[in-house]
Design a binder for these strands. Sequence first.
DNA 1: CTCTTGGCAAGAGCAGTGCTCTCTATGTTG
DNA 2: CAACATAGAGAGCACTGCTCTTGCCAAGAG
Lengths: 235, 235
Amino acid sequence: MNASRTARERARAELTREIKEEARRQLRASGAQGLSLRAVARELGMVSSALYRYFPSRDRLLTELIIDAYNVLGDRVERAGAADGDDFRARWRACCAAVREWAIANPHEYALVYGSPVPGYEAPETTVGPASRTPIALLAVVRDASRAGVLRVPDDGLAPELDAQAARTAGLAELDVPEPAVVRGVIAWTQLFGMIGFELFGHLDGSMDPADAFFAHTVDLMADFIGLPAGPDGR
Amino acid sequence: MNASRTARERARAELTREIKEEARRQLRASGAQGLSLRAVARELGMVSSALYRYFPSRDRLLTELIIDAYNVLGDRVERAGAADGDDFRARWRACCAAVREWAIANPHEYALVYGSPVPGYEAPETTVGPASRTPIALLAVVRDASRAGVLRVPDDGLAPELDAQAARTAGLAELDVPEPAVVRGVIAWTQLFGMIGFELFGHLDGSMDPADAFFAHTVDLMADFIGLPAGPDGR
DNA sequence: CTCTTGGCAAGAGCAGTGCTCTCTATGTTG
DNA sequence: CAACATAGAGAGCACTGCTCTTGCCAAGAG
């Protein structure tokens, strides 16, 4: 990448970045619903129609923010999962905690990517890569435990269709892991996001709220569920 | 209830009902975002300002729809859980299937109640009753299995804080069930909705999609997880 | 060093939104 | 019947996403 493009191109790149920054600010402040192109333009001292030189529609701007959110979360979870090389339970805990911490710190961005899809908005192909980074990072813990020979593989019988889907999923994540373990990993993945979504959207109010203890306990039970061994401290 | 109120009152009740019906129709067609007071009014042959005689704001209309959705789902799950008196696993399966079927049949209503909350919208107290019917119906299966003495109670150690929360939750649902079983029930609840939400919002595309086999398998594993006995057919 | 091209911002405008206010017609009640 | 409460209509406000036209100005071509 040569940074010495023409003045026009540099200005364009700069402004594109600034628009996204301001949009993210508004998103964080008031959610996807509250993201207004006119308000973004106003804040940047330009007129709304000028924004359309940079983003063809509000949905495309949102798509950019969605991709960024997926990537930020993916980054965090990947980094969390990379530490503690052979303590697989600690890695699992760290990944789950990374997801929750990001979600709590950025509830509107969480809602944007994992909440209800925006009206008539169809996620383009470009989001699936960034979106799969997090589940892949979670399943990587299972894979590494399996490779290390310490994964307690469940003997669940799978229907042929489900077995095929598990094999396909394993292929995506380059998992050399028995299908039943893959399925349990996916279940734990849905559990994790179900729990975090419920916490964030208030469905746990009155029962498991605040959810810290519940979360920690559940993460460990899910580690058992997918067959991860206890950590070196025996827990 | 005397049905012979004044003509005005009957007309008012009638119109209130029609407004909600039309609103629900638009909600189903195009989601909460696409619900427009003006469009509802137009469809009913009245002017938008007239709607404000019946609902003080769009949010209040949405609240009504939310409560209705919770109640419809609660109804279905309660009825599903009432059948098959002593086959607790079958009851569990029926409850879970009821949730999923309703969700798939009414994705926009599902998104309205379990997806991202609408911007700045704060769920009023009146929603919590209807909202808790579904989790209570799910936990009732656990309770009945426990009362019948067939619940395999887990020996999970709970942190004091979590134990207290579990006891409080049990109180809400009038559950005479050991705290660890309550916690596992709540976990299964979050798993169920996490899985259904992921299926509905497309996060399972490319892995466990179509999700029928995955769903059935997961529901059974979760039944194991909460300690329900196998059904009379041994599975 | 001109001249043409093309990217760019601005402004006006369209069709729509939630919501408020005023005014008039009509049903209800003392 | 008269007094009152209520329902609907209409105009209007401040906003939205988006389109189209106009004019400016930098960049490359001859």
